[in-house]
């Protein structure tokens, strides 16, 4: 049997890590817990994590002239049905999928050839171009938001999917990450592909892309998480058409309309929004970490 000995160093390490984990997890705990409770429990902060789940009466339902008997519900059911009924949440989720997936695919289509050229082709000004990519990494989105908005407005593209997607299609980070990964791909492999009759583009899609799957997965997580959760940019370019709202914009609906007692449905919405990402991450976790550590191919 293994015996565990007390060690101050290890203990301190674990205390720090546990505190860090708590700080990160606490908001999630509150979000999930709130999404399960009845309004009174939320206000008075009672009921533990799950709440008492006592039958509650839906005020709106009664106001619409239904009998009180018919409007009794468990708080969980109430919160989550409200999430879908009060706003077209499915539509928002679909928008989120359309926008994030389009962004990611176009980013890959742009970044892979760029990264390949920067990593493996010799041409004049290569280091200059790569320097420019690094500089682009340093520019914060908010700094260029206004010019971007004006440009899109002039082109008449606000309130469209294009406005949500186009500004993000060229990812300096994606180019940088993939370039670093491609550096680890042996030159011989590329030369072999050339001897086998592949054009440079064929090499990118037939050799580099399959080799880069772990790195692409890592990039996918960064890209999808960033744009799925983005509130700032959709808020700027989607001003009128509600049917283009992405999930974070949809979350706002609850704030405006229903004053203070809509926390339950709101947190239910938030939970629904983050769940796909967490599930995707858990599924991809192992390969994701492989990609981050850029373990090349041997």
């Amino acid at each position: 049997m293994t015996t565990y000995r007390f060690s101050t160093g290890e203990t301190i390490k674990h205390v720090v890590l546990i505190l860090g984990a708590l700080v990160v997890l606490l908001p999630f705990y509150l979000m999930v817990s709130t999404s399960l409770k009845a309004p009174q429990e939320i206000e008075t902060n009672r009921g533990g994590f799950l709440g008492q789940q006592e039958m509650m009466v839906d005020g709106d339902c009664v106001r619409q002239g239904n009998a009180e008997e018919d409007c009794r519900q468990r708080p969980v059911v109430y919160n989550y049905t409200q999430a879908f009924e009060k706003a077209p949440l499915l539509r928002y989720l679909l928008n989120g999928v359309i926008v994030t997936v389009s962004i990611f695919i176009i980013q890959v289509v742009v970044a892979l050839p760029c990264a390949y050229a920067l990593a493996k082709l010799r041409f004049r000004g290569r280091s200059l171009v790569f320097g420019a990519v690094i500089v682009c990494l340093l520019i914060p989105v908010h700094a260029i938001a206004l010019p971007l908005y004006i440009g899109l407005a002039k082109a008449g593209l606000t309130n469209s999917y294009a406005a949500l997607i186009i500004p993000w299609t060229i990812s300096a980070f994606g180019i940088f990450l993939m370039r670093q990964f491609f550096m680890t791909v042996p030159d011989d492999l590329i030369d072999a592909a050339r001897m086998d009759g592949m054009s440079e583009f064929a090499i990118v899609w037939r050799v580099m892309l399959p080799a880069a799957v772990p790195a692409l997965l890592a990039f996918a997580i960064f890209s999808v998480v960033a744009h799925w959760n983005d509130y700032f940019w959709p808020r700027i370019v989607i001003t009128s058409s509600q049917e283009l709202f992405t999930p974070p914009l949809g979350l706002r609906e609850f704030k405006g309309e229903m004053a203070d007692h809509a926390y339950g449905p709101m947190m239910a919405t938030a939970t629904i929004i983050v769940t796909p990402l967490i599930v995707a991450f858990l599924l991809a976790q192992r390969r994701f970490i492989e990609g981050i550590t850029l373990s090349g191919m041997k």
């Binding site: 030369d191 072999a192 399959p210």
Partner: peptide, 28 residues
Amino acid sequence: AADRNLSMVFQSYALYPHLSVGENIAVP
């Protein structure tokens, strides 16, 4: 290189890691 009709065997073999042996041989 592709149009010279020469074949090369590399020191590191340079096989496509994502393809099976049969697919590797079929590439050219």
